[in-house]
Amino acid sequence: MDHPTLPAADLRQITRRLGNREVLRNLSLQIPRGRLTGLLGPSGSGKTTLVKLLAGIDKADEGEVTVLGRSMPALPVLQRIGYMAQSDALYADLTAKDNLVFFGKLYGLRGSRLQERIAAVMALVALDDHLHKSVAAYSGGMKRRLSLAISLLHEPELLLLDEPTVGIDPVLRQSIWRELLQLRDGGTTILMTTHVMDEAEKCDSIAFIRSGELTAAGSPRELMERSGASSIEQAFIAMGEGVTA
């Protein structure tokens, strides 16, 4: 069962096929609890598939996925996970508030608690002035932030963010990073995919993934030392081939 010393998520020899293509191949990875882990890899490398396996909306063909002590997919675990998809899954014909209320209720929030949480997460992503606007009128960056706000609504223990900062301007990106680090300090485990290298450097640990295989994992410092590179970007290029893995 779940225990604070166990990793928040544990992937053991995962293989996932779509058609006859292996999107993930015999991949093993542990997501340490209470840390911010970055998943780095070129597009098409299997990052999103990995996140979906953790989110319980996809199932591995081989291997085992354990999240918060439970073998996935398991319905009760979903309550403890916050998921932000790569594409903004929002109802464009509704207002931001409608969207928040809908998803909040899916996670069992209601009444004054729901109103409190909505106010809190919208302040966090600096959208409090646009609460009653129709999502169709939102810009791309605003939609991204609303998606993030929705994933934070029910205060999940594990936050899965698929490309959370795409399309968000540098100033706001920085403030979102501040909040993510604050959430981490409060005990939330965060896994995010990115291909922005300077973001990767802020992560507690990094996993490099390429063509569905894990090529390297460790803290940014470790990875740079191991590859003898002076930046994460160089480390990624060096280790991306799987030489040092």
Binding site: A55, I57, L75, L78, Q79, L106
Partner: peptide, 14 residues
């Protein structure tokens, strides 16, 4: 197609 179904199913809804 808009991905909201997938997002919906990431929530603990049966």
């Amino acid at each position: 197609t808009t991905g909201t179904l997938e997002r919906l199913l990431a929530a603990p809804i049966r």
